Amino acid sequence: MAYVNAMLVCTQAPMVGAVPFLFPPDKVQMTRDVQFSSHGSSSPNGAKPAGGLESFKKAEPLKINLSEVLFSGPETKPLCDQLLNWMSPGSGRLGQMVGGALAVKTKSMNHVNRLPVLTFQMGPPSAGFLYDVMLQSAQISFTRFNRTGIPIRARATLTLKEQPSLLGTLPTNPTSGGLPGRRTYTVTEGEDLVNLARSHYGGTSDWRRLADANGIDDPLRMRPGTTIYLPNPDEFTD
């Protein structure tokens, strides 16, 4: 079996599938925006604060742009179709059958409207990329066909949007003070360790261990912009 440089994988039914990349993308561009509020005395016209301070509110999810992803061979069209199907929940015969059955049972189509969460992996997890993402956009150019008109080569540009998960780039930089397997997280306005434990570990019972791992005395009062460590769940086992 050939070594796979990078791939996208989905484990959520009925959208299960994998798209291996023939070669690494030519370029991986990562972008993150932040939101902040300004504090200080107002200018005479009241339009903008004058000489005020800017306070961090939240960081937007990471956007990952993959340029020049190459597909080649007889699997070119099925792999590109898989990418497009991930952007259209409930598409394809299997998705429509499963989605329709669930809709009859639940009287709801909300599950059909959710994009599946994919795992993007490129290189070894210890030194490369490992993120849970949604496929936000795909631009695909078919550049070669066989004599019957079947595509046998394509180039794609993909935009991925990071989703909250327990993955992340590993290991944590040793100079940060974190243990291997930990991630860092920047606290946003209104967050505390109780709701962080719920969102990252599935329950509130681990807030005290999260506080101990970060040397925090008051878990209910944290300033926006504070960076904390999110230990690997294995560290919480007794």
Rank of each mutant, 00 (worst) to 15 (best):
N5T: 07
L8V: 10
T11P: 00
A13C: 06
P14L: 01
P14T: 01
G17R: 04
G17S: 06
P20R: 07
L22M: 10
P24I: 08
P24T: 12
D26M: 12
Q29Y: 07
M30V: 15
R32Y: 07
V34C: 03
S37Y: 06
S38F: 01
G40W: 01
S43A: 05
P44I: 00
P49L: 12
L53V: 04
E54P: 03
E54H: 09
E60M: 14
P61L: 05
L62Q: 12
L62M: 15
K63A: 13
I64H: 02
N65M: 13
N65L: 11
E68N: 13
V69Q: 06
F71W: 01
F71G: 00
S72K: 05
S72H: 08
G73E: 11
G73T: 09
E75A: 13
K77Y: 14
Q82A: 15
N85L: 07
W86C: 03
S88F: 03
P89Y: 04
R93K: 12
G95S: 11
Q96H: 05
Q96P: 00
M97P: 02
A101C: 03
L102E: 02
A103K: 00
S108M: 02
S108C: 06
S108F: 01
R114I: 08
R114Y: 05
L118D: 01
F120G: 02
M122W: 04
M122P: 00
P124E: 14
P125E: 12
A127C: 10
A127P: 01
L130T: 06
D132I: 04
D132S: 15
L135R: 04
L135Q: 03
S141T: 13
R147D: 14
G149P: 09
R153A: 15
R155C: 06
R155Q: 10
R155E: 10
A156D: 01
L160F: 05
L160Y: 02
K161N: 09
K161F: 05
K161S: 14
E162Y: 10
Q163Y: 02
Q163P: 01
S165P: 11
S165G: 13
L166R: 12
L167I: 00
T169I: 11
G177N: 07
P180F: 05
T184C: 03
Y185D: 09
V187S: 08
G190N: 11
D192E: 06
N195H: 08
L196Q: 03
L196K: 01
G203S: 15
D206L: 13
D206W: 00
A211Y: 02
A213P: 00
G215M: 11
G215S: 12
G215V: 12
D217W: 02
R221N: 14
R221G: 06
M222G: 00
T226Q: 15
L230R: 04
L230D: 04
P231H: 07
D234H: 09
E235P: 05
F236M: 15
D238T: 11
